[in-house]
Design a binder for these strands. Structure first.
Lengths: 357, 357
DNA sequence: CGCGGCAGTCAAAGCGCTTTGGAAGTTTGG
DNA sequence: CCAAACTTCCAAAGCGCTTTGACTGCCGCG
């Protein structure tokens, strides 16, 4: 059994004061190289680590960042992109010596949890996930005066805040445009939850691309829900069995797209020939859409990279604040998605509609 | 802007001592109901929360649990089951007032991270994920004398420790047995990474079921790797294109099974008729294998429930230790997976092999 | 009336660290 | 040879909370 040693014990063992030992270990210049070396060795030998709680009480910094991941109260579902987002962010945190505090919270009482985390002073900053159209967390956190970065944006919020987002509008405009270029006219959109800000922007991009060609969006071809495989399957099946079915789908994530593919097969159609699909690809680690010719044509933007960059932004904001540079203006980053052609898109086959009937 | 108030300020405002205020808020009996009520109201009004860092320094308990999630250095992949596992555990933690500290760590330096977390005394306990066949973390943590629960087991470790596991051996024995009952003889196993303990147990169950019918396992039909969609696709495609292809697959997770289905379609075979699949289903929230007749025949065990129960076990262990009951013996729970029939299994069609050639 | 007992409150000591404000010891320069 | 200027170290004061031990009234009992 390994006994846990503290500063006092270590300093007594060395015959030095706590001050000196602390300074030696934290790299302060007031201590000679000889003592520093001796102290370092002893600390190593007894595998001494400063007690985090005491350290953060003394310094006022907890070296911890909070992520609050929403779990939908409807489906008890956790969006799988969080795994990769957190992996990216976590990498950045551990590099900088920060810990990550995770709160899994029903989306109904987000506000309470954020307020709690902030006033308990348990973290130095936090990241806001999945902002809604008008997200009340943002003004609340500004009010609480705690550093935060939003992954996404909230259209209904006036005033500046730090965010990192993908250019969803342009991504979906391009995705839809590609299908239009291929001759498709009946294009369905399988979007995320309508309350989410990103879903709104994606709708925008889709509608805009259609309008540019003089096509009005057909509400029958637009669906909103949590992005499960089953959602993709059910919606696509329903749409494909109508009298005027879509010949192409734009899908918000690879997971429902798997369901769409299932529905296409089930309808006796050929994926990528009779029906085209373009997805938004978050580049999930266990669902890599890669290969010489990836399965899905996609607008891609790595959610892991987003996590990493959000974390880096937040740490930078915290650093600045500690140096007293408070009025630097907000940090805002817009990432562009990249279009890659896969096996899921092809030109409209005029006869396809007939074949089906 | 909301100013953060501390105990001292609150007690001064009330004209009481810090002791009394602290006791009033923490429900100690030494304080009159009248004062308690007054204090509660004032705390509410100023939205006072005790500073976590100070509190945990004073009490010696950090009210935090650590999860270390491994990210494979090979594929930079995060196993998506962690999202649901953590959702389950997080529910339990927040109910008990605990926070969750998450470390995302390349699997190579797990030991360092665990030792670090333990000696920095930043958490009251931790959960070990994805144990390997002989997992060195277990003796290490016993040595460090910190409460922990293993999600899974490690066959190579002698000596008792707290764990919660699914009966993988029986689950895979049943899955394989079902396929054998349906007449299949060439049954492939798509397993997880060979280093994982659960993969070993699953191999066992599979092999045992075959042996019971006098069939020797064919190494050509067994694959081990990280459970991505692409892995399922590639392996199934390869196996299906041999001269003596399998007529059925047992697959370790729904994600590679999606890939297997893709390979089956691509080979021009019919899923569930020409080729059968039984999966192990972790009941992932975004990949629910449900419906009147679920897509996949499965041995199912909810990973979310596992998370919740692991968390409950750990909190119980911590509670006992605080009450001085150290020698209660280890807590060990074995969950049984439940078999449900879906659309992915059917009797062996003797002509199938011919059709294909 | 006096004393034990109890309810309600408080001052002060810690938890393990950082950091301030010296105090020694050592070197330099006039 | 002594003052000034470093260098190297230290004692002690906090950080914001809990908790111990003591203290003050006030009641009831002999």
């Amino acid at each position: 059994m390994i006994s846990c040693m503290n500063l006092k014990q270590l300093s007594e063992k060395l015959g030095l004061s706590q001050t000196t030992v602390s300074r030696a270990l934290n790299g302060y210049p007031e201590v000679s190289e000889a003592t520093r070396h001796k102290v370092r060795k002893a600390a190593e030998a007894h595998s001494y680590r400063p007690n985090t709680r005491a350290k953060s009480l003394a310094t006022g910094r907890s070296m911890t960042i909070a992520h609050v991941v929403p779990v939908s109260s409807k489906h008890e579902m956790v969006n799988p992109i969080f795994a990769d987002f957190i992996a990216g962010a976590g990498e950045e945190y551990s590099r900088a010596g920060y810990d990550l505090l995770l709160s899994v919270v029903a989306d109904s009482d987000h506000e309470r949890v954020y307020r709690d985390i902030a006033t308990r002073q348990v973290v130095d900053g936090l990241i806001v996930q999945a902002p809604t159209l008008t997200d009340t967390r943002i003004p609340m956190l500004q009010d609480l005066d705690i550093p935060f970065v939003v992954h996404g944006r909230s259209s209904g919020i006036i005033g500046a805040y730090n965010w990192l987002d993908v250019n969803n509008r342009r991504a979906f405009e391009r995705a839809t445009g590609l299908l239009l270029d291929l001759g498709h006219r009946r294009i369905a959109l399988l979007n995320g939850l309508a309350t989410m800000d990103f879903a709104h922007r994606r709708n925008d991009g889709y509608t805009r691309a259609l309008l540019e060609r003089g096509i009005a969006a057909d509400p029958e071809l637009i669906a909103h829900d949590e992005m499960t495989e089953n959602y993709g399957f059910e919606v696509a099946r329903r749409m494909l069995s109508t009298s005027n079915p879509p010949t192409a789908f734009v899908v918000s994530s690879i997971i429902p797209a798997i369901g769409v593919r299932r529905a296409i097969n089930k309808a006796g159609l050929v994926f990528g020939r009779d029906v085209s699909i373009v997805i938004h690809d978050d580049d999930l680690s266990y669902f890599r859409n890669t290969g010489d010719v990836p399965l899905f044509t996609a607008v891609r933007s790595s959610v892991r990279e987003a996590g990493q960059r959000c974390a880096a932004m937040l740490l930078e904001i915290i650093r600045r604040r500690e140096e007293g540079l408070r009025n630097e203006g907000p940090m805002q980053t817009l990432m562009e998605a990249e279009l890659t052609i896969g096996q899921s898109t092809g030109p409209l086959i005029p006869s396809a509609a007939k074949l089906r009937s």
